[in-house]
Simulated scan of single mutants.
Amino acid sequence: MLMHGQTAPKADARQTPPWWAAAPLADAAAHPEVGLNPAELARAGGYVAGRPRNDFVAGRVLVRVLAADVLNRAMPQGLEMPPVLPGELELTQHCPQCASTSHGNPRLQLPGRGQGFSLSYARTAGWVLLALAPGNDLLGVDMADSSDPAFASGDGELLEDYAFAPAERRHLESLAAPERRNLRARWWALKEAVAKASGDGLAGEDGIPVVAGDRRHRLLGDQGTQTIELDSGTPDTRGNLLPSSLLGSIVWAPGATA
């Protein structure tokens, strides 16, 4: 979404939009057979023991579970294409800025099948959300909880000052409080999704991405980029819905690579 009520250019009809899925982190408990790779285990150790660490581990388990489920629904199967198992999926990362493999844009690989997928995921309010697209397209996804008190902050408070550009603030100020709160959350999810898709991050050279007005991020200005809004009325690839307070965004640039 570029401005409230506007839509992004549509992708070529021949291109399949990204698949996406969401689930509560608690669902990870049903998959004790799914483990993390050594790099993920090392990163998990950097989180505070208890809920922060548990949520990280649960999120990475569910990324594999949801990705496998989505792929099995989307891809033809048979004797030459057995079902995809969560444990066989390889998650890798690559930073387009420094070429590091310890951070950056995630990728999903199916070992032995010669297939790779663009991948993006997010954890918020006890849920995990992922998006998946064949190939190496730029892809970013994020979600925000509109019930978070941060999105109800008044004008001039910290979130408003650092998160939104002047044109965005002017538009937010023109809205009634409930609509302003929802749009703050939706724009924040979109900013995060743009930061992930572009590989710039929120601390990139241009700072937090601008998603409305003349100075919006270059990725949103590209005619090939598609933005997909997610909410409780939008079923995921598996037919499931997000909770009513969660708002998400997918930013997808088919044909563009990092």
Rank of each mutant, 00 (worst) to 15 (best):
M1K: 01
L2G: 00
P9L: 14
P9S: 13
A11L: 08
R14P: 01
R14E: 08
R14T: 13
D27F: 02
D27P: 06
A28D: 06
A29S: 14
E33H: 08
E33C: 05
Y47N: 01
Y47Q: 01
V63I: 06
V63G: 04
R64F: 13
L66R: 00
D69R: 15
V70E: 10
V70H: 08
N72F: 11
A74K: 13
G78T: 03
P82F: 15
P83W: 14
P83D: 09
P96I: 04
C98H: 13
A99Y: 08
H103E: 05
G104M: 04
L110M: 10
G112I: 00
Q115H: 10
F117D: 13
L119G: 02
G135W: 11
D137E: 06
D137C: 15
V141T: 12
D142F: 07
A150G: 03
F151L: 02
R169K: 15
R170V: 02
H171T: 01
L172K: 12
E173A: 14
A177D: 15
R180W: 07
L190K: 01
L190T: 14
K191C: 03
A195T: 03
A197C: 09
E205D: 11
D206C: 10
I208C: 05
D214H: 15
G221P: 04
I228Y: 01
T234A: 09
T237A: 14
R238P: 05
I250D: 00
P254V: 05
